[in-house]
Write a protein that binds this DNA or RNA. Structure first.
Lengths: 288, 288
DNA sequence: ATGGGCGTTGCACAAGCTGCAACAAGATTT
DNA sequence: AAATCTTGTTGCAGCTTGTGCAACGCCCAT
């Protein structure tokens, strides 16, 4: 849209390939040297490109700083919430979002079940780290040595007969989870409650959060809940894409995403046809 | 130099602070909405900014990708990392690697302290250039006239009573640092935090980076930290040697500088006997 | 319904960008 | 050492291109 800016930005991927001098840049841009010079100078003033001692231009460290700052200010919860709500609308069950931090996994967001029977949980509360599906995903993503170290120093309370028994069993479970890219908790915390979970990944592929759908088996059987897995995974991936700042799938580079509609909409609603009971009052409000 | 590009680039740091809508952007840029729109569109087409479902703009995936490439081109980082990790393993404190670029000193790598009390810092963040030990080393290495010029145009915030007071004091400090080949920051940025730093030099002797060990004095006194100086210097020299293409110590003499094979190992571990406590939970806040 | 907020569009004007050509400074060759 | 080539830099005239205005449309809240 703006020729000048367009040209300037075209310099960046070019420099990403490696350092280049003024003439090379001008050549690749198909503009006069003086034009390229002015663009490079502007980029330089902003620290986006850096001038090497040999006068050639490179991408600058400032770029790195910008990206870093942006990532830090990214709020997974804010980004994820509409997707959680949508998922909840689709299946009616409790949806959680959790992050790992300092040997703990914390729920940071939640959309309440619309069924009368609900599971108990609280935003900000540490989850049962050895059994929760979201915890398994987040720990499974840690680098091997740390994963092992954490597994060793955890406690393994026997909430139920199906709770993880100890470090060995836990590490084995983590390996499986890591492999398959999703996790479950079938009665490991509360005898009658099951969960399925999927990871939300950042631009670098690391798991920044995990989300789960939980329901007591008086409402849906474990098998039925597992039927939601594809939807859960798809939702998690949609959040990941959004979190990484990727353009929505429909948009071929350059074009506009169109009317940009509005809501997340993971995909033209999934094959799962839920039977959400008459909505209870839902707690739209996030949390402290 | 180029007004249009200048304005477009000014949008980036603004969006790094968090998502913003068209009006906010136009406001901060002091331009008409339509102008801001065109700039944002151009940035959008290049994938530099991303449009959220709520129509607000934030930095996009391509910027992250570019930043990644930019930092990968800084091969010091790659070479140095194992040494930083080793140093951290030896002393338990936070280890930083920083480079100088365009009147700024940026952290480009970091290995976290294993003590519960940590200092705050962020990769990609510009450091307090007038007081940080790494900054002193990098600036001390500039040729005299430039060093003076930079010193003149810096600000000298008084973070603490021991912060550098102004250009004269700073230049004196730089001269001393240049002379002795290492630097400290004893409470110049945060009253309770000390650092010791040493330079990483390229084949031509110029400082290409600097590394530091930082610790709050509730953990170790300044004197104890200074005791680490020999180790820090030896590590920096090991990195310098490898960066300059010399075979890592382990390799048979005369061989290839090659893939650098295995582990760093600065020297048969130093006299410093650390007592790194097992990490406990600290109260770092999650996503707001 | 009505009004306000916000993004989007078309357009006339001139600001600013573009490319040219000449200049400067090193490096390389004769 | 002089000549020549290469590459970055500057000033400028012309006109492309970006700018701000005002009007429009859409959506949400009242």
């Amino acid at each position: 849209m703006s020729q000048t800016v367009d040209r300037a930005l075209s310099i960046l991927p070019l420099l990403a390939e490696g350092p280049a001098n003024l003439e090379q840049v001008a050549g690749r841009l198909q503009v006069h040297k003086s034009t390229a010079l002015r663009l490079l100078r502007t980029l330089h003033e902003h620290g986006i490109v850096h001038r090497q001692p040999d006068q050639r231009y490179r991408l600058g460290a400032r770029l790195f700083a910008l990206a870093q700052e942006a990532v830090e200010n990214l709020d997974i919860r804010e980004i994820a919430h509409p997707y959680l709500a949508e998922l909840n609308a689709a299946c009616g069950h409790t949806v959680h979002l959790a992050v790992y931090e300092e040997d703990e996994v914390l729920y940071i967001d939640k959309v309440e079940s619309r069924y009368p029977v609900r599971m108990y949980s609280r935003i900000g509360k540490p989850v049962a780290i050895t059994v929760a599906a979201v915890a398994k995903l987040l720990l499974a993503d840690l680098p091997e040595p740390e994963r092992r170290a954490v597994a060793e120093r955890l406690d393994y309370p026997r909430y139920t007969s199906r709770s993880t028994s100890g470090p060995a069993a836990f590490l084995a479970e983590l390996a499986k989870v890591r492999e398959q890219g999703w996790a479950t908790d079938l009665g490991g915390h509360e005898e009658s409650i099951n969960c399925v979970a999927a990871p939300v990944r950042g631009a670098d592929g690391r798991a920044v959060a995990a989300m789960s759908v939980s329901a007591p088996n008086v409402v849906v059987s474990a098998e039925e809940l597992l039927g939601l897995l594809p939807l859960v995974r798809r939702t998690a991936e949609a959040i990941s894409a959004e979190y990484a700042g990727q353009p929505p799938p429909g948009a071929p580079a350059g074009g506009f995403p169109g009317p940009a509609g509005a809501s997340p909409s993971v995909s033209p609603s999934p094959s799962v046809s839920p039977n959400p009971p008459p909505p209870r009052k839902s707690s739209k409000k996030a949390a402290p």
